[in-house]
């Protein structure tokens, strides 16, 4: 795609040199957007280097030298509770995202490549599920899990995070587009078992799409606030989002907390930003292509 449009641009440039001049207005609007989006991140980077007194006393964008003191204070807080939150977030997001991707790939593959009774019904139920937002479900999920005594456990956050109708929907689109039916037929005539065909033939073909699904789900779970906030009472089980918001609540009584909160905010966005920059090429979010095919 990219190469064709570049080639087109070059060809066009040769024909009419006027068109490839720098478009200042366009560039400036884009840079304004970039500034708007980077500015709060730059602020948190600067603010994390300050003590609480400096935070309220100096110009917000001038850095200071307290970053490592802040990190040390944050680490000391209740025997490294902050790092435990970080670990919990990673656990919820990695395990939940991984399992979610696996079962979505299976279901999407079945919906795209198998013929069976009730297939249309199953797909329609799935679409209804896409339209029911997870957050609205959080309180009913809590009520039900409370009934069976599962609230305030790792399971109460992990299990509801695994089901994602939207991931199944995406997996179905990818399986339909990336796995040719003749390849499955060929595997079958070679005598491969259904599961083996899925694992060794279909999964590798779907891999780029599956990575996108995993990233989606990983970010959704890592960023989720309401579900763990409702489910968990024990702060040893908190993910970062709930942990930091509990620190903000203490901050209204102990302003010294604010320096810790801001340092924590900085540390907790670093892993996701790293994940983003390293896996950039998988962020091709083709919602509409799926919509057309559905």
């Amino acid at each position: 795609m990219k190469t064709s449009s570049q080639a087109h641009g070059r060809r066009d440039g040769q024909r009419n040199g006027r068109r490839d001049r720098i478009g200042w207005p366009s560039t400036i609007i884009l840079l304004l957007g970039a500034f708007y989006c980077l500015m709060p991140v730059a602020w948190v980077l600067m603010a994390a280097t300050k003590s609480t007194a400096e935070l309220f006393g100096t110009f917000t964008f001038s850095p200071s030298g307290n970053l490592f003191t802040n990190i040390a204070n944050l680490t000391d807080m209740r025997d490294g509770l902050f790092w435990r939150w970080m670990g919990n977030s990673a656990l919820y997001a990695a395990v939940g995202g991984g399992l979610s991707t696996l079962i979505s790939a299976m279901a999407g593959y079945a919906l795209a490549k198998f013929n069976f009774r009730g297939k249309k019904l199953a797909f329609n139920i799935l679409l209804v599920g896409v339209l029911v937002p997870g957050v609205v479900l959080a309180i009913p999920q809590y009520l039900l899990l409370a009934k069976v005594g599962l609230t305030n456990t790792y399971w109460s956050v992990l299990l509801p995070s695994i089901i994602s109708p939207y991931s199944v929907y995406l997996a179905r689109v990818y399986a339909g587009a990336a796995v040719p039916t003749d390849v499955i037929e060929a595997g079958r005539t070679d005598g491969a078992h259904t599961w083996r065909i899925f694992r060794s033939i279909a999964m590798p073909m779907m891999l780029p799409g599956l990575i996108t699904i995993f990233l989606f789900q990983f970010v959704a779970i890592w960023n989720n606030y309401m579900l763990p906030f409702i489910m968990l009472g024990n702060d040893q089980l908190y993910p970062l989002t709930v942990g930091l918001s509990s620190l903000v609540n203490q901050g209204s009584q102990y302003p010294a907390m604010y320096a810790l909160v801001i340092t924590g905010a900085l540390l907790s966005i670093i892993p996701l930003i790293a994940l983003f920059l390293s896996l950039q090429r998988y962020w091709r979010v083709d919602l509409a292509a799926g919509a057309v095919k559905a």
Binding site: L30, L38, V41, N223, L244, A265, I269, I273, F276
Partner: peptide, 11 residues
């Protein structure tokens, strides 16, 4: 412009 998607709403 895409970067803020990596930042949780709480933060």
């Amino acid at each position: 412009i895409f970067l803020p998607y990596a930042v949780p709403a709480v933060i």
